[in-house]
Computed example of a mutant assay.
Amino acid sequence: MKLLDSRYGGLLLLAAGLLLLPWLAGNAYLLDVANRIAINAIIAVGLNLLIGYAGQISLGHAGFLGLGAYASAILCGSYDWPAWLALLSAAAGVALLAFLVARPILRLKGHYLAMATLGLGMIVSLVLSNESALTGGPDGMAVPGLVLFGWEPQGERAWYWIFATLLLLAIWLAQNLIDSPLGRALRAVHGSEVAARVAGVDTTACKVQVFVISAVFAAIAGSLSAHYTGFVTPGQASFLHSVELVTMVVIGGMASTYGAVLGAALMTLLPQLLSGLEDYEMLVFGLILMVSMIVLPQGLLPGLRGWLQTRRAA
């Protein structure tokens, strides 16, 4: 675990694992699961900055994912925009929306903040479902393939390298932000917003910045996942999906970047592993999550790290 504690040790370890994974995965199905884990991990890393470090809950984060996905789908499918321009425009549009709503929403605290972000996510989901002429309505819409300067990734393996690279970049950006003055300010806000304000921290600006950053992470992941799957539906922006994203951060370990990655991997893999249980799948899934949080209340990665340190001390 010492390697994971160093600034870039964990990143190098993860990069080595990602390099080996395509050769260990025996078929396209396993690579597809790995791609979906990477998509969720990118979103969870960004959301962890907001929840784990700044202490601001968001129950509507899937809305930003859905907006990113539909922006790319509409701009590429209906208006024939280049994929790279649609992706950048989606990220910029989501960043602007997040900036506009962040200041009034982040004035709230506790369950009031949770309800406000829940309302935001529900509005996005309803708009995507009801604007049938633009979004295809509840049935969703097809998304053209990703073409970047004449190159189009074909198959799960090609997409794997895209998602793996973006995941490493997301982690690197998150780690650098955590070690920056903004990251230290966010930890101060999480500890005591009043004390941080007295110490001279512009708490409102810090919270707005991290809200926008986490939204952009989700939008980019949403855009790429739309091109990868070739189809989008309003379900991607649903409340249940937002809860899943928050659960990834919490169960992996809040204020732990690699914990968020681990939580995303667990939450993506478990339904695949339990699919054979049929009627008992959700029962066992819920039981595993409940036991995990009882045994390791700080999250999987911090809990395992603490357990190993205790064993060494003994």
Rank of each mutant, 00 (worst) to 15 (best):
I74W: 12
Y79I: 00
A95F: 11
A91H: 07
A83N: 08
R103C: 03
V101A: 00
V94T: 13
L75K: 05
H111S: 12
Y70E: 10
A92I: 12
A98G: 10
L75W: 09
L75C: 02
A95K: 01
H111R: 02
L88R: 06
L85D: 02
A102Q: 03
I74M: 11
I105K: 01
G77D: 04
Y112V: 00
I105P: 05
G110V: 03
S89L: 14
L75E: 04
L108Y: 12
L85R: 01
P82D: 04
Y79E: 02
A98K: 08
S89D: 01
S78M: 04
A71Q: 09
P82I: 11
G66M: 10
L87M: 14
R107C: 01
A95Y: 05
L97T: 00
D80M: 07
L96N: 03
L85I: 15
D80I: 05
R107E: 01
Y112N: 10
A91S: 13
H111I: 14
S89T: 15
V94I: 12
L97I: 14
G93W: 13
R107Y: 02
L87K: 03
A90I: 02
G68S: 05
A86Q: 09
S89F: 14
G110Q: 08
L100E: 02
R103F: 15
L75T: 00
G110R: 03
I105T: 15
A92Y: 14
K109R: 15
I105V: 15
A91E: 11
L106E: 03
L88P: 10
A98E: 07
L87R: 02
F99S: 08
A102E: 04
K109H: 13
Y112Q: 03
A92T: 10
D80L: 13
L87D: 01
G93K: 09
S78V: 02
V101C: 01
A71I: 06
S72L: 14
